[in-house]
Write a protein that binds this DNA or RNA. Sequence first.
DNA 1: AAGTCATATGACTCTATAGTCACATTATAA
DNA 2: TTATAATGTGACTATAGAGTCATATGACTT
Lengths: 209, 209
Amino acid sequence: MPKKTFMNLSKDKKERILNVMIDEFYEHGYENASISRIVASAGIAKGSFYQYFNDKQDMFKYMIDVMRQEKLTYLETISADEFKSDFFALLRKLLKGGLAFLRDHPKQAVIYDRFMASADEAVKKGVMGEGINASNVFLEKILHERKAANELSSDLDVRFMAHILTSVSLSFGEYFRNQYEDLSKIKDEEYDHIVEQTIKLFQYGIGKM
Amino acid sequence: MPKKTFMNLSKDKKERILNVMIDEFYEHGYENASISRIVASAGIAKGSFYQYFNDKQDMFKYMIDVMRQEKLTYLETISADEFKSDFFALLRKLLKGGLAFLRDHPKQAVIYDRFMASADEAVKKGVMGEGINASNVFLEKILHERKAANELSSDLDVRFMAHILTSVSLSFGEYFRNQYEDLSKIKDEEYDHIVEQTIKLFQYGIGKM
DNA sequence: AAGTCATATGACTCTATAGTCACATTATAA
DNA sequence: TTATAATGTGACTATAGAGTCATATGACTT
């Protein structure tokens, strides 16, 4: 948790520092991000940094928390009712929300993906808290309900499929990064195409029907 | 590429050093692996290390190359004929081979996964060379043939689906690591179950049939 | 104006690492 | 046995980053 001193800063200054952090983590990854570089880029003194945060992990956690908040706003448009509509319609909304976040915040998405694949489990747990499996737990619950409602295959391994769904959605960023130089130039149709391919895979498989 | 000096070492010594490297990268990831620690653990002098390798990247590339060789032996049992049999049978063989490698070399698999998700594209390219997309290119080719042979859905995006297949198979390691404390205790039936769930997903989807 | 509190500063210490190099040891050959 | 080449060694240098702290600045209060 950032210290009170940081929270008291003007919105402008907070944002300036946050953006420097994002660039640093995007450029160098979590392990190699340097506090010395960050303070230099942000134009603040080393000592000030330690008035704001306890250490790198503390700073990173703040960044991830802001990002989570932001991502939630992309999924907010999914109403309670829709959770009860059919599974694939819900999945479509979730995937579209995720891709819209990716489009608007590509760096953060990269930072997140990489951190999740990184080495130190202790750090990961410290930063993510119990939210580390939030996506899996959430999907598992939904899948379980749909399976009970006879909407999904009766021999489906719910836990495994929740994992696969999470992996697949996390891999979209990498896919687009491989295919396109500049993520901001990707058209909505291309995002939609990927969503539809994914939905179709989960709904019917890829075999000839 | 390791220097000739290293190649001249006895098989024993090479293996001892390789195992220390594996432990170090497993424990600390690529970025934080320390040459000083490696030489200490391996009981060789710092200077010797630099007679063997140019630097960390050179050493890592050697380790990855050995690993690739090893992994190939797990897929070797797939005959040329089988590439012409049906797609899902081939996929089953590939997935089983991958999981057997995971079972026998869990640390290497972790190291590989993490490195692929890590930050520095330049380092990644240096280490992986053009093999970085070997799996994708290979799968794309197969998918393309099967689609042409009318075995797969006619509106399938081959490139995207190759990416998804790669992601899914790479995510198996993480799945098992989350589910089980000790990977060596996982039974063959559990691996088979995961393979069958995956095949079924790609063949028919997860919807009620 | 004087006093008090929050915030800002950057030189400094401490630690860890990569990479070097002059010298020592061991193997090979003549 | 002596000479030459290959391999091994670890103290040393250079560098970079984390985190500290005594001091300075400014803002607000009485």
